[in-house]
């Protein structure tokens, strides 16, 4: 059955992020002046406003910042419920929303600060989503 859930549509500013996921090597932008990694993608550093930014590989390691366990599925996610929607803090600093995989949707097994690692989920031929599992 074809994948029918919402898919991201890249913009010129975000295309390198989605391309890096497709290669299974996540990249984020890093300010070359103040050395801060940041997310969402944008053409300037949100910390010091420098336009001197570049895409760099990141480790894929993260910790669990916060999460919910959704029992009332969004449309087309019915078969997944209950599922975990999380915000993780990457080892390099930025945060991103994601899903947790490879772990029961049980608060007892999901303490904040849990160590995680990225899983590249090739949901279509064009799109790879970054998901996370316990490291």
């Amino acid at each position: 059955m074809p994948y029918n859930k919402p898919l991201p549509q890249a913009t010129p500013e975000t295309q390198p992020f989605w391309d890096s996921l497709k290669r299974h090597q996540m990249q984020l932008q890093r300010c070359q002046d103040c050395r801060e990694f940041y997310f969402y993608p944008r053409p300037f550093c949100p910390r010091c406003y420098s336009a001197n930014v570049a895409w760099e590989d990141v480790s894929g390691r993260a910790t669990l910042e916060t999460y919910v366990i959704n029992h009332r599925a969004a449309p087309r996610f019915e078969e997944d419920a209950p599922y975990v929607i999380a915000v993780v803090t990457l080892a390099e600093g930025p945060r991103m929303m994601t899903n947790l995989v490879g772990v029961d949707p049980d608060p007892g097994k999901l303490p904040p600060d849990l160590a995680l690692e990225v899983v590249y989920d090739d949901v279509t031929d064009e799109v790879t989503l970054p998901k996370f599992r316990p490291a």
């Binding site: 919402p6 913009t11 969402y40 916060t66 919910v68 009332r72 996610f77 599922y83």
Partner: peptide
């Protein structure tokens, strides 16, 4: 929100306003 939240199955305020609470 379409690129960085919707693909993970957020479905209205109960899934988004609640995100901070576990922390």
């Amino acid at each position: 929100a379409g690129q960085f939240q919707a693909p993970y199955g957020v479905g209205g305020p109960p899934t988004m306003f609640s995100i901070p609470v576990a922390r």
